[in-house]
Nucleic acid binder design. Structure first.
Lengths: 350, 350
DNA sequence: TTGTAAGCGTTATCAG
DNA sequence: CTGATAACGCTTACAA
């Protein structure tokens, strides 16, 4: 209903300043192509009228928006916050505006949001990960929309990645865990369907088991949405198993925090009775007692990098190349060698 | 540079379907005002072409966007995340899309973002708090832009508030703290300049001191940006004072977590050696050991409520009325009665 | 340097 | 129910 019926237009400004609309437009977009004098007059008119150019009109005429869209699975926890903030800051310094929306981890909402952003004329898009319907990629292709995927590096994705190797990252962590002597390992993962990060982290763990000659049969993986309370519930289930796992690797820090709180609530000492690890190194992970062993992800660098790469694509200066960022394990108090309790499990090497 | 040079338009669809653009438009906006048969033909064309209506053009023609803008001080920590998520969900169910941007607590960036959102044709705006230049309110008035302020309830703000009484909330907390016997109180606040929430929380503490006949002279308030590490630094300063405060009230949970970690790092026991409180009841506050005493804020309710009220304003169904939400103190392990160490301070009542 | 005028892709009015 | 056609506010050749 409401609308700028009264909002001043270019025309109003032009009339008051006694010039043509073209001149006003120039004053705003290329101030040096107009006489100092005229400009002052125009700017005055702009000021008195409180004129703000109409974005939609500008977009239609100029056919670009200087706007980048990003769709992230959630804003509720900090997983994407830091990287996204860096993404925005970098975009801003490049003269672009960021539009964010969240899909609540639901593919069909993501698809809807993609279409919305395309329709809104976003010059480019940032998506999280690669797992989505081929139809969406086809659509983006047809729209010739520059897109990058972040938080996951893939050699052969349909779009360039600015991310890290989730599988290898989890492999490294699991490798260290196994070397400590753990051989009864469980995992609390995010829902892997439609989430390559979650899926690859599970795969990474399995790789590590295999590399150490451990069977994946004895591995229990519980999948649950990324929320603290879900981590707690999953932990309760796992701790009820017999024999009890000596370590629980979590798909991210949020789940790990839940697991840790639950363990402590159950009277289990971490890491003496059970070790717990997280992933992402968000702030949560360092404020628990003990602090969580986790995997460092260069969030801010990833955000900046994604912004730069995407803008290159948008401005036609490049076809879009993937960037692989390094992660590393952060060892902290929540992980320790298993205590040989009932002397049932032979010690691993190392 | 890039643009939809090739993106299909209404015209293309019309041509392929063998109808006029008007008919295609109707199919999309009022499907029941067109023959079943025609519609199917049109929809087919839409499908094969992968047509998505151009948002800018639509906005220009229809003069409304079904878009609401929100500008929050930061996305990096969870303070606004939950409320904003609820805001978005409610807007979505009302048929609106949310555009979020963050101002990094910088007034001039906020102003810029406001103009950007106005120019983009946002039908309404959500801002955080009330402290901003009058010029901005004048501008919004001229634009006849519906706006609400959240996270802070004010009787006489220039725009309606959907929020809570920050001053009273902190008063309640401080009152309980004082009743426990604390009389050497310090505070770590966010930067109060341009932030009414921070300012009012300090005022609330002072109110409580006065109400208990304590002088505000002996109150130390350290102001620092809302970040965990800043909370830690401030805590270090405060703990160096002599006599050492027996309790540190923090402007929010983020600062409180920093304070708590630092205290523990310094070998101080919380709450035996020093009590610490937070504000906001975000997740951080419950995962520390001990958990933080804090103030519960109905984030989700606030978000939903703001969405409803704003949409009423946008659709001209109301002038915008303020809503005051209730908060309450959440007592947890980080707060206890002071230990009468050097028997210097007389016990308070209660 | 400045003005004129032709779009940009939709919606909406008004006939048919 | 459907089709012309005039806005919508701005940018941008092209002229002057």
């Amino acid at each position: 209903m409401r609308m700028t019926r009264s909002a001043p237009t270019l025309n109003d400004v032009a009339r008051i300043a006694g010039v043509s609309t073209a001149t006003v437009s120039r004053c705003l977009n290329a101030p040096d192509r107009v006489f100092e004098d005229t400009r002052r007059r125009v700017m005055n008119a702009v000021e008195t009228l409180g004129y703000t150019p109409n974005f939609a009109a500008r977009v239609m005429a100029a056919r670009r928006t200087f706007t980048i869209g990003a769709i992230i699975p959630t804003m509720e926890n900090a997983i994407f916050a830091r990287g996204l903030q860096a993404f925005q800051e970098e975009l801003y310094s490049l003269g672009y505006t960021l539009l964010v929306s969240s899909s609540a981890y639901q593919p069909q909402i993501e698809e809807e949001q993609i279409r919305t952003l395309v329709a809104r004329g976003a010059d480019g898009l940032l998506l999280i990960g690669h797992d989505r319907d081929a139809r969406i990629y086809d659509y983006l292709d047809r729209q010739k929309m520059p897109v990058v995927a972040a938080w996951s590096y893939l050699e052969d994705g349909r779009i360039p990645s600015i991310g890290f190797d989730n599988r290898h990252a989890m492999y490294s962590l699991a490798d260290q865990v196994i070397r400590l002597g753990h051989d009864n390992i469980a995992m609390i993962s995010g829902i892997s369907e439609g989430n390559d990060r979650a899926r690859l982290r599970i795969d990474g763990l399995k790789d590590a088991l295999a590399a150490h000659g451990l069977s994946a049969d004895c591995l229990t993986v519980v999948e649950t949405p990324y929320e603290i309370d879900n981590g707690a519930v999953a932990m309760e289930t796992l701790m009820a198993r017999s024999p009890r796992p000596s370590v629980v690797l979590c798909g991210n820090d949020v789940l790990a925090v839940g697991a840790l709180l639950k363990a402590q609530e159950m009277g289990l000492r971490v890491p003496q009775d059970v070790s717990i690890t997280g992933f992402d190194q968000i702030e949560l992970a360092r404020i628990t007692t003990p602090q969580l062993t986790t995997v460092h992800v260069p969030h801010r660098k990833m955000g900046r990098c994604a912004a730069q790469e995407l803008v290159l694509m948008v401005t036609g200066q490049g076809p879009g190349k993937s960037v692989k960022l390094e992660t590393h394990v952060v060892l902290r108090g929540s992980l320790a060698a298993p205590v040989i309790a009932d002397a049932r499990s032979p010690q691993a090497d190392g």
